[in-house]
Design a protein around this nucleic acid. Structure first.
Length: 711
DNA sequence: GCGGGTACTTAGAAACCGCGCT
DNA sequence: AGCGCGGTTTCTAAGTACCCGC
């Protein structure tokens, strides 16, 4: 990997799917600089693969480099929460309110809604002309003002109030069931059987999943069959008694043919579908919240189907029933145009609660939990919250040393409860574990977080591979993703763990005197707004910032710098254990890339040969023309070298990424202002780091962060 | 403290789509 | 023009957190 100066070796063993990477030496000379090998395995489903990373940059987050003393407020934007004095422009909703009062009735308001939906410019003329002072108007760009609304420059609502006006069109329901054509047969025990519409619908859910591993799982089949039978007529129920005798293959083939046909559709037909979707989005995909048109994240109601829990879920295969208008609670302003239920139906309830952000809710039948329709991440209401999250994490930065000292003290406490709390917090901080709420047994897959760790999830090694006091973690976390890690800990922690495990069974709680509520209460005392998850945000963001500092080589070209960025991002993903199944086409795409590289290498060799002969030629002829030839050949070689390097960088990046998902941390844990500042500092176009959606979500950060931003 | 309920964030997989290649 | 690939978008499950009444 010449050129990048970062990468020392890479090897791929396709046999056992193990990658060993020697990452650049990012070690910190601090607590964990001796840390061991970090490895994990992914065992969701029956996939098993493992990834090893050595040496230990993953642990480095615990020791942020001493950043020169922070200008206490300089560079800090007023946090959305603590900031009480109005920063910039006042909210505009009074503008709207006035308009609204002038019209004085509901129709006026929904007129406005329609106007906004149809034409934001027209709306502009109507509402703004009356109130907005000249100066203000000139300041704003004339077009697409609605999209470029800088909510982050406006005053925020007092705590608790989420909006003052909300109008929307309600949800889009799943399309009704279309019975199968007569010629598509279902067989039971080898014989054709015509199913009732209800039973048939549920059967199609199963048929559509026939190729999926789910349908081979005992629990899935059992749950499905039980719920399916509930939908059958009594005759069907008495005939169909054994799922193994059911033959869905014809149905399955039919659906495959259907989706094939869909792919083969003509351009016009595809265009028509596209337009229909756009129409739906236009009509139902937006709402008006406080004077602004905002995108809704999920305006379509989840269609019925079979529940696909992750990991070993006891409810997999159960029937997710169809949601009807009668299940739906609508939330909107009293004075808005209330969305009408579909003809012949009623809403369950219409309420006007501006202390919450959701527009629509219903109760789902598998777990009995509530589902919501809410706004897009680009909306003010989500963006403000996101911004606030990072501000809380930055406040933690200021007191994290103190908190760390505190919990280290607490390891010695004479109170068991305090010791457990302190050790758990140490894990949350050092390993970025999740809090670990209790879960109802038998209702969900058996997964744990920090506070819910059980004795069986850790092993203590007084000595392992030449290191002292090693704790071996092995448990399933969120989404049944395996967390596997061997971590050297301080002696005191180790001794405490031994104590916590004394006289316990493997299935007993490790921290029997602790839960997330106790932990969070304690954290609240240490810093306002502090909860367990803030540590994840803080450690992720500080790691990114630090890794970017370490890895970015000023002399690198743009692709190499982006590789560095991705590596910094990767360090965070590893810290947070964000794994993915290796893409199905991984090996193949890697081979393709390799052959491209080989081709490029040959091309380079050719170009070099040509250059050489051109040089020789020039030496003999000593004329202008041959000199020029040499120059152009030189250029060609350089160009090809650059292309080759780009490809090699790409290969490296992809390979290092095989089992690591960068998206989650990028979207949820990394203060976007760090990335924006990095881009500005090194002249990297922001588009190289964030795609369109991400830029929309992080518009606030892109607008406000300068090159010198410090998390 | 604790059990139930609610609101909201975080998560990986699957579906989709557009673009470059043949 | 059809095809495959990779990035993007959609989907919805699975977490965290906190409230309330006892």
């Amino acid at each position: 990997m010449k050129g990048t100066g970062l990468f020392t070796s890479r090897s791929l063993d396709s046999e056992n799917r193990l990658i060993s990477l020697t990452l650049p030496n990012l070690c910190f000379l601090f607590w964990f600089s001796h840390a061991s090998i970090f490895s994990w395995q992914k065992i969701q489903g029956n996939k098993t693969s493992s990834l090893k990373l050595e040496p230990p940059f993953f642990a480095s987050f615990c020791s942020p480099p001493r950043i020169k003393d922070e200008p206490d407020d300089d560079g800090f934007y007023a946090s959305p929460k603590e900031d009480s004095k109005p920063l910039k422009r006042p909210r505009e909703d009074d503008d709207f309110k006035t308009f609204f009062e002038e019209k004085g009735n509901i129709v006026a308001c929904s007129d406005r809604f329609l106007l906004i939906l149809q034409d934001s410019k027209a709306k502009k003329a109507k509402s703004k002309d009356k109130k907005v002072p000249e100066a203000d108007k000139r300041k704003k760009p004339k077009k697409e003002e609605e999209q470029k609304w800088k909510w982050w420059e406006e005053e925020r609502y007092p705590e608790g109030i989420k909006w003052k006006f909300l109008e929307h069109k309600g949800p889009v329901f799943a399309p009704p069931y279309e019975p199968l054509p007569e010629n598509v047969k279902f067989y039971y025990d080898g014989k054709v059987m015509k199913l009732s519409t209800k039973a048939e619908e549920v059967a199609t859910f199963f048929a559509k999943m026939l190729d999926h591993e789910y349908t081979t799982k005992e629990i899935f089949r059992k749950n499905f069959f039980k719920d399916w039978r509930k939908e059958m007529t009594s005759e069907e129920k008495s005939t169909i008694t054994n799922l193994s005798k059911c033959d869905f293959t014809h149905m399955s083939q039919y659906f495959k043919a259907q989706s094939e046909a869909r792919k083969q559709m003509s351009k016009e037909e595809k265009q028509k579908i596209k337009e229909e979707n756009e129409r739906l989005l236009k009509e139902y995909g937006y709402c008006v919240m406080d004077n602004h048109k905002e995108r809704i994240a999920n305006f379509k109601i989840e269609p019925p189907g079979l529940f696909r829990g992750r990991g070993n879920h006891p409810k997999m295969g159960m029937l997710k029933r169809r949601i009807m208008p009668e299940d739906i609670i609508i939330n909107c302003s009293k004075d808005s145009k209330i969305p009408p239920p579909p003809p012949g139906h009623k809403w369950k309830e219409v309420r006007h609660d501006n202390k919450v952000t959701w527009l629509v809710s219903w109760t789902e039948n598998i777990q009995g939990s509530i589902k919501y329709i809410m706004l897009n991440p680009s909306s003010r209401i989500k963006g403000e919250k996101d911004w606030q999250k990072y501000e809380t994490a930055r406040r933690l930065k200021k007191c994290v040393d103190k908190i760390r000292n505190q919990y280290r003290e607490d390891w010695k406490s004479k109170e068991m409860k305090v010791r457990q709390r302190a050790v758990a917090l140490y894990f949350i901080d050092k390993l970025a574990l999740r809090a670990g709420n209790e879960k109802e047994e038998g209702e969900t897959a058996d997964t744990v977080g920090c506070c819910s760790l059980r004795v069986e999830h850790i092993k203590l090694h007084p000595e392992l591979d030449g290191q002292e006091y090693v704790v071996e973690f092995d448990f399933l976390g969120k989404d049944s993703i395996r967390y596997y890690n061997k971590v050297p800990v301080e002696k005191r922690v180790f001794k405490n763990l031994q104590l916590f495990m004394e006289n316990k069974q493997p299935e007993d709680d490790l921290f029997d005197r602790l839960n997330t509520s106790i932990l969070n209460k304690h954290l609240q005392d240490l810093m306002e707004g502090l909860t367990a998850k803030v540590f994840r945000t803080y450690n992720a963001s500080i790691t990114l910032q630090q890794q970017l500092k370490e890895l970015t080589n000023p002399d690198d070209n743009i692709p190499a710098k982006i590789l560095s960025y991705n590596r910094a991002n990767r360090a965070v993903a590893i810290l947070c254990n964000h794994q993915r199944a290796p893409p199905k086409t991984f090996e193949k795409s890697m081979m393709n890339l390799q052959s491209k590289i080989d081709a490029k290498k040959e091309q380079l060799a050719d170009a070099r040969r040509e250059l050489k002969s051109a040089k020789a030629d020039a030496k003999v002829r000593r004329d202008e023309k041959s000199k020029k030839t040499v120059e152009s050949k030189k250029k060609a070689v350089q160009r090809i070298e650059e292309q080759l390097m780009k490809l090699e960088v790409q290969a490296t990046d992809r390979e290092e990424n095989k089992q690591i998902a960068l998206g989650t941390s990028k979207l949820n844990y990394l203060d976007p202002r760090i990335s924006v500042a990095w881009c500005k500092k090194w002249g990297i176009p922001i588009e190289k780091i964030y795609n369109k959606t991400q830029r929309e979500k992080f518009a606030w950060a892109i607008d406000m962060a300068e090159e010198d931003y410090e998390f």
